[in-house]
């Protein structure tokens, strides 16, 4: 169980950040939501991570990010010996076949298109939380 590990949200659009936070808050989520606003910040986080630092239970990654694009961030995450095992869920506006294919080739665990409708968005947040922080086994999690 990873219920206290943070969820890392890498999202460039401030409104989407706020809406995602609100969508997660609806479920009184146990896992804190940490936010990174651009690709550079995300890559710096990966590069600066040291053994013993908290590991996210899941990374929610937008593809359209300022400075460095999401696919590049994904490549850097996957190249890291420790953080590289964290599940990455691509959460983006793009439903392009090409983006989906590239994301999976780079090792994304899931690909979700952000719904326009807020109700559906809340539902997406609920399912992400349930699946990736409660049901899913993490490489860092120690069996209870």
């Amino acid at each position: 169980m990873n219920t206290t590990l943070p969820i890392l949200l890498i999202e460039g659009n401030p409104m989407d950040v706020d809406l995602t936070q609100r969508a997660f808050i609806r479920h009184n989520l146990a896992n804190p939501l940490e936010v990174m606003r651009d690709g550079q910040e995300a890559i710096d986080f990966v590069a600066g991570w040291r053994a013993g630092d908290p590991v996210p239970s899941v990374i929610l990654l937008d593809l359209k990010l300022p400075k460095i694009c999401g696919l590049e961030v994904l490549r850097v995450i996957r190249a890291h010996p420790d953080i590289g095992t964290v599940p990455v869920v691509v959460l983006t506006s793009s439903a392009e076949d090409d983006d989906i294919r590239k994301a999976y080739l780079l090792g994304a665990n899931s690909y979700i298109v952000k719904p326009v409708d807020f109700e559906k968005f809340i539902d997406v947040a609920r399912q992400i939380e349930l699946y990736w922080t409660v049901l899913n086994m993490h490489s860092f999690s120690k069996p209870a």
Binding site: M15, D16, L19, V116, F118, F121
Partner: peptide, 14 residues
């Protein structure tokens, strides 16, 4: 257009 529309839809709903 999807991103701002998500904002409008989301906040009017909220």
């Amino acid at each position: 257009l999807r991103a701002p529309l998500r904002g409008i839809a989301g906040y009017s709903r909220l």
